[in-house]
Design a binder for these strands. Structure first.
Lengths: 147, 147
DNA sequence: ATATTTGCAAAAGGTTTGCAAGACG
DNA sequence: CGTCTTGCAAACCTTTTGCAAATAT
């Protein structure tokens, strides 16, 4: 496992430092999106000195390398998540517990058609995100902050 | 037209001030998403004194009232747009000129199915945004910054 | 040995807040 | 008139940057 992370890092031409490995371990331990500060707090339990900029820099590099994905919350914060799924997919996000579930459904073909025919433009990317309540949070009673 | 805006404002229990009306006029004049600062600059041509916080406060109120929509750009900035379309729809956004085109295609039913059957959760909302190049920008030659 | 990575402090940049003065109904 | 709105200045908060010291290969 730590082995895997080292290989991932080398594959991106990044040196395998303890901080980077632990960052990936922290993300691997969670199935919810984490903010950079969440990640920093979890990592600080394992390092006496750790700067928040280090977390940001590494998140950016891993994101650029396609190892992790991120979403922008309406509150303008970025949240990061470790991709376990190699294929193109989208996300269901529980607005209560922030749990993420990969969704393989994708309307890419239809979108291409709409844009080619109606707009006569070109699709570069698309965002599809489902916000809702997961099974677990549906069972707990109501109080969910508005989204 | 100005009449309309005054009615809209009253409908939201907001007083009809010149600043608010002009804010709506500015949005009505554009078919691209505008940043709060874009809006501020356009509005400043018509008022000697105008604070940026006023623009933010009014955008927030109009957004909360459902009169305008907004998107979060990958650069983390918020952009605002005047909804002319009452029905549920999504957006095609040209990443070069920021032009917005309403897209009526929606995979809502499929998403509901996926979530009900696979995740056993509940859909509260969904985001579908197509990023691409509009016909006009496709014709201009290449230099489009990466998205 | 050398290039990369990190910590720290400070800056940046967009957005929000507090409050007194002003405008709407 | 009382309440809502605005301007200004300052605060906020997340993210970025500069640079010297530390670390990986």
């Amino acid at each position: 496992m730590k082995q895997d992370f080292q290989q991932i890092l080398r594959g991106l031409n990044l040196k395998s430092t303890p901080k980077r490995v632990v960052l990936l371990e922290v993300l691997d331990d969670e199935s919810v999106y984490l903010s950079p500060e969440d990640i920093w707090n979890r990592m600080k339990k394992r390092f006496r000195r750790l700067g928040l900029p280090t977390v940001y820099r590494n998140l950016e590099e891993l994101y650029a390398g396609g190892v992790i994905s991120r979403v922008i919350h309406p509150n303008r914060q970025l949240y990061y998540y470790l991709c376990r799924n190699e294929e193109h997919h989208h996300h269901f996000i529980c607005v209560s517990c922030r749990r993420v579930v990969d969704v393989s459904f994708c309307a890419e073909k239809e979108l291409q058609d709409v844009v080619r025919e109606g707009i006569q433009g070109k699709v570069l990317s698309h965002i599809l995100q489902i916000n809702g309540l997961c099974r677990h949070c549906l069972q707990k009673d109501g109080a969910v902050h508005a989204y």
